[in-house]
Amino acid sequence: MSIEMTKAEVPGVPLLEVRDLHVEFHTRDGAAKAVNGVSYTVDAGETLAVLGESGSGKSVTAQTIMGILDTPPGKVTGGQVLFRGEDLLTMSEQERRRVRGDKIAMIFQDALSALNPVLSVGYQLGELFRVHRGMSRREARAKAVELMDRVRIPAAKERVNDYPHQFSGGMRQRIMIAMALALEPDVIIADEPTTALDVTVQAQVMDLLAELQRDFHMGLILITHDLGVVADVADKIAVMYAGRIVENAPVHELYKRPAHPYTRGLLDSIPRLDHKGKELYAIKGLPPSLTAIPSGCAFNPRCTQARDVCRSEIPPLLDVTEPDGTPIGGRTSACHFWKETIHG
């Protein structure tokens, strides 16, 4: 079955589904287990925020979905990435190439290094239309101008022949967004799209991204370590730690009452005005080395609630319920003591 044939939304099948994904990196110290059984889904028009520290596996998962993981040293050791029900990981390189950039596109963190310094932005935008749509150079350039207008770059017509270094950071990120948007993909993966930007520009870029996602009814996977960015735009959140998802929750649920000690730690470490004068909270310790993940729950050495069972048994992702047992939609937690964590 080709991708084109399944263009229409299939009821019951998620737009994009990652199923029990395992990725390892070959290092001198042995295999680094970057992703250990991650699963998540995104539907059209939905925004999933993947939250986690550096090294939690959030970017590696995204790179695996895109098929741009450096192999070697990286290696997918298990799992599936289903796009409209079709496993991308078993496709031929040629088939995958047709999906990349066209059906699933990616926005990178640092637009200055992610754009080619010696090619004009017009060329780099137009290239997508030339490669995937077989347009001529001239048509592609016109499309590039259109796109630059769409992401609100002033004087797009005059600036289409400029080079990346001639734009400001915010404008460059807009060009990155335009590039991801070019072929109107079904899914966009944004890997820390605002991290490299000034705070004022961050909000503008985030708003633009959210607006375009609504207009095009795309699925958006937003990878970030910034809880502040997530709150306004995301529908649901997956929190990652040491290559696993430790908590899934609708965005407001998560902020209101976290069901995993790690999530709570993250929320507590956000600076708040009413805490002025008090010391800033920080989760003690460091994330584990991926070549030596602690036994049991990977978070146990840093957890304030850790008990013996946390050091011996890996907690599975369990459904989170109200104290009386009524289920809460879309909530799971990988903590042996989620009940105490959420209900106190």
């Binding site: 741009i68 990349r100 992610a114 080619n116 490669v131 590039m179």
Partner: peptide, 20 residues
Amino acid sequence: DYMRTAKAKGLSARRAVTVH
């Protein structure tokens, strides 16, 4: 990074090498 972008755009390996 720009080579990773080129790949993410779905360019062929040949095009990524010769153009980028």
